[in-house]
Amino acid sequence: YPGSLKFINAALEQGLQVAVVSSSRNAPAVLIASGLAHHFEVVVDGQVAAAAGLPGKPDPATFAYAASLLGVPTEECIVVEDAVAGVQAGSRGHFHAVIGVDRGAGHQSLFDAGATQVVDDLNELL
């Protein structure tokens, strides 16, 4: 998604830290294959979560763990998610904001799950 890449680059240019939190067990491989791995100093995927004994989404533990690895309090972090369970996790974790990205879940479903804002593309936030 070109808008997502623009959003990531804009965040990094502003000096913000970014992390990937994925329930997938192959997130690092996907990031390497896509040429995006260098953008993320922290990746918490299914393997990391299992090794750390963290429950998956909709529990907020993986997001909180990523925030701790970045050294940023959760109340200062923004969660960006396209899945209902991920939005629920962000909402339950009391993060500063939860941005839902509608990639098919539906705006209302993401709002109902706890999104503070819903967009069709992250480019809308720039």
Results as ranks from 00 to 15, higher is better:
8 I>W: 09
8 I>V: 14
9 N>I: 11
9 N>G: 08
10 A>H: 11
10 A>S: 11
11 A>E: 04
11 A>G: 01
11 A>L: 15
12 L>E: 12
12 L>D: 07
14 Q>D: 15
14 Q>T: 05
14 Q>S: 14
14 Q>L: 14
15 G>L: 10
20 V>W: 01
22 S>M: 05
22 S>R: 02
24 S>L: 06
24 S>I: 06
24 S>N: 12
24 S>P: 06
25 R>Y: 12
26 N>W: 02
27 A>P: 11
28 P>F: 07
29 A>H: 10
30 V>D: 12
31 L>E: 05
32 I>T: 12
33 A>I: 00
34 S>W: 00
34 S>G: 08
35 G>H: 02
36 L>I: 01
37 A>T: 00
37 A>Q: 11
38 H>F: 00
38 H>C: 01
38 H>Q: 11
40 F>L: 11
41 E>C: 13
41 E>M: 14
43 V>H: 12
43 V>G: 13
43 V>M: 13
44 V>P: 03
44 V>Y: 00
45 D>I: 01
45 D>Q: 05
47 Q>G: 10
47 Q>E: 13
47 Q>F: 00
47 Q>K: 12
48 V>D: 10
48 V>Y: 14
48 V>R: 11
49 A>Q: 09
49 A>H: 09
50 A>P: 03
50 A>V: 09
50 A>G: 06
51 A>E: 15
52 A>D: 03
55 P>A: 12
57 K>W: 02
57 K>S: 03
57 K>P: 05
60 P>M: 05
60 P>R: 02
62 T>Q: 12
62 T>H: 02
62 T>P: 06
63 F>D: 02
64 A>Y: 00
64 A>C: 05
65 Y>D: 06
66 A>L: 09
67 A>K: 10
67 A>C: 14
68 S>M: 07
69 L>F: 01
69 L>H: 05
70 L>F: 08
71 G>P: 03
71 G>I: 00
71 G>C: 03
71 G>F: 03
72 V>G: 08
73 P>N: 04
74 T>R: 13
75 E>D: 15
76 E>W: 05
77 C>P: 09
77 C>N: 10
78 I>C: 11
78 I>S: 07
79 V>W: 03
79 V>M: 03
80 V>K: 13
80 V>F: 14
81 E>W: 04
83 A>F: 13
83 A>I: 07
84 V>I: 15
84 V>G: 12
84 V>T: 10
85 A>N: 14
86 G>M: 08
86 G>Y: 08
86 G>D: 08
87 V>T: 09
87 V>G: 10
87 V>K: 04
87 V>R: 06
88 Q>R: 15
88 Q>N: 07
89 A>C: 04
90 G>D: 12
92 R>P: 06
94 H>S: 14
94 H>W: 05
95 F>T: 04
96 H>V: 00
99 I>T: 10
99 I>L: 09
99 I>Y: 06
100 G>Y: 09
101 V>M: 13
101 V>G: 14
102 D>M: 07
103 R>Q: 14
103 R>L: 13
103 R>H: 10
